[in-house]
Design a protein around this nucleic acid. Structure first.
Lengths: 122, 122
DNA sequence: CAGTATCCTAAGGGATACTG
DNA sequence: CAGTATCCCTTAGGATACTG
């Protein structure tokens, strides 16, 4: 058996992950679905900048990739609820880290900008 | 002070992170630079599918966002080395998790496909 | 070696309108 | 309510060629 401790990351795996998560709003959707199922309209309210069409598309793709569940209630008016699957939940820590990093990055960028300004007004 | 334990993720932070890491090859580049600095040509060999122009662009953007360092050695022929900054290193755990997840996802997808086939030949 | 300079294509989304 | 159906447009990234 190959017991090489070397960490081998197959390019394919990053690429695969990116292909699934690459949509502009997918991570955000998953984040909103992390704890509760939400109706389509609730997601829309949370993300007003996203067009219905696009939101639907992204949800369909996430569903296809097994990250969200879609439950249709045969009522009038129709009700559709979206939830996160276990596979999506496995992604949450990643999301949180990404977010923390984004926060750090923001701080850093601001600090840099401030420093630059100070230098320019010198 | 606001001691609300509630986890607030500002949309902006995911979006910010995505805007920095969104390039098609950026995560992969960062991965290759995780341990050692590499020359431009070495990166090219590692990622033959990426055109020079694109590789250059992605590197420039990463540099601009403070994720990679670019060192030019005034030699003939020119030598340029790229390295990862501490900010990039803070991202490595995320990368690894993403990768692991990609691997899981692959397995799952294969399992699903196999199951489907079995059912169809029934 | 490590780039720029052009040109071009594909596709992910955006905007608006219509419907079961 | 929760979608489809169109049309359109930007832009990231690909292909090829040229240079300090």
């Amino acid at each position: 058996m190959n017991s090489k401790p070397e960490k081998i990351i197959f390019k394919g795996h990053i690429r695969l992950a990116l292909s699934v998560l690459g949509g502009k709003w997918k991570l955000e959707i998953l984040y909103y679905l992390r704890q509760a199922t939400l109706r389509f309209s609730e997601l829309q309210e949370l993300m007003p900048e996203v067009r219905q069409k696009v939101l639907t598309e992204q949800l369909r793709e996430l569903e296809h990739d097994g990250l969200v569940t879609r439950t249709v209630y045969a009522e009038v008016p129709p009700r559709v609820e979206y939830g996160a699957t276990p596979y999506a939940h496995a992604l949450l820590p990643v999301l949180e880290m990404l977010c923390d990093w984004g926060q750090e990055h923001e701080k850093r960028t601001e600090a840099l900008a401030a420093a630059k300004e100070a230098q320019e007004s010198r």
